[in-house]
Design a protein around this nucleic acid. Sequence first.
DNA 1: CCGATTAACCGAACAGTGTTAGGTTAACCC
DNA 2: GGGTTAACCTAACACTGTTCGGTTAATCGG
Lengths: 199, 199
Amino acid sequence: MPRPSTPLLSPDRIRSVALAIIDRDGLDGLSMRKLAAELGVQAASLYGHVRTKDQLLNDIASSILSTVDVSGFTVDWREGLIRCARSYRTALSSHPNIVPFLAYGPAGRDESLQRLDLLHGALVDAGWSRREATMIAAGLMYIVFGSALSSFSSGFSADPADYSGRYPHLDRAHLLPGVARELDRDSFELALAAFVRGL
Amino acid sequence: MPRPSTPLLSPDRIRSVALAIIDRDGLDGLSMRKLAAELGVQAASLYGHVRTKDQLLNDIASSILSTVDVSGFTVDWREGLIRCARSYRTALSSHPNIVPFLAYGPAGRDESLQRLDLLHGALVDAGWSRREATMIAAGLMYIVFGSALSSFSSGFSADPADYSGRYPHLDRAHLLPGVARELDRDSFELALAAFVRGL
DNA sequence: CCGATTAACCGAACAGTGTTAGGTTAACCC
DNA sequence: GGGTTAACCTAACACTGTTCGGTTAATCGG
């Protein structure tokens, strides 16, 4: 195929289809050839619109992070922390498969830095020292990324035989998959509430 | 080379060299061919001792997790949680490059389940409901994995120009790399203390 | 002590990966 | 209408994990 009358590709379309593949097939399920195929194109053509696969993933990550809302610091800092963390988690849990990639280096992304900057400033305004503000922000990120990533309850088997006997206190762990999402959310809320209350 | 008089390979030696490569070159820096080369052997020979690369990584992960000590629950549950979390973090932060792999599915590993079982039982003994115990254990894992993984302070640039102007509250972020390890530890301790206190 | 078996390694290959170089043609601008 | 550029292609490179079949040394049974 030579140059088509209307372009088949655009950075936006590539990102959107790539994210759909990641959501559907996981992070390892995305390859440039598969992505190209779903776009009706050969793999090499992607490189006219995207510098590298890593850059593509970074762009997708940035677009996800840009949906995080840290504007809830008007009331008080405790409520602000909670709102910020919830917004982060909402953004991450809508695309859980890309979280491992995100977690590699959040500090380097402009979107992360912008939000971190706001968070840090709000904490300092609330009376915390710069060092304390940094550590509190870090702790909040621990909970957000830990909950989005480890996805605690997913990964448990649904077969009771895998637990009974060997792990005396986990004799009901096989029930976890059924309530995984709810339990994940509640665990996050508990951890978040305890952390903020304990500050 | 035919069969050597004394075997060059053993599962233990393979695991140990593989972990050394991961520590040195990162998780992506480990390939079966490179691993074989450092063992003085061809890649195919590894498969006489190791089922797959994934299995090899799982074995390494298990050996790391098996160093985690959750026996500190004799005194009270708060102190027990803190000791357990510290032991986890110590184990993980000595091999940070493998943490992303570990975080994929900690629930499936026998070593994780054993420690989770003890943790869960101790919390129930302390008076928490089963559901609460599960959520508290999950919250603890959030902080442990979040801190081990996101490695908050690593990833910041050492160049002030990257921050000044653009992020008004982060004008000293370039100092972070120099104190990264200390700050990471302090942030973890703060998050852990706040979480446990807030329960 | 000798023969069969097995254990341990190797070379070559397969299918897959990200990425690049060079070619072809349609669309666009002057 | 000719030149330039943009958008795609094919083919290839250097990798990846893994498997197959072969070669030889160690080991065990009689």
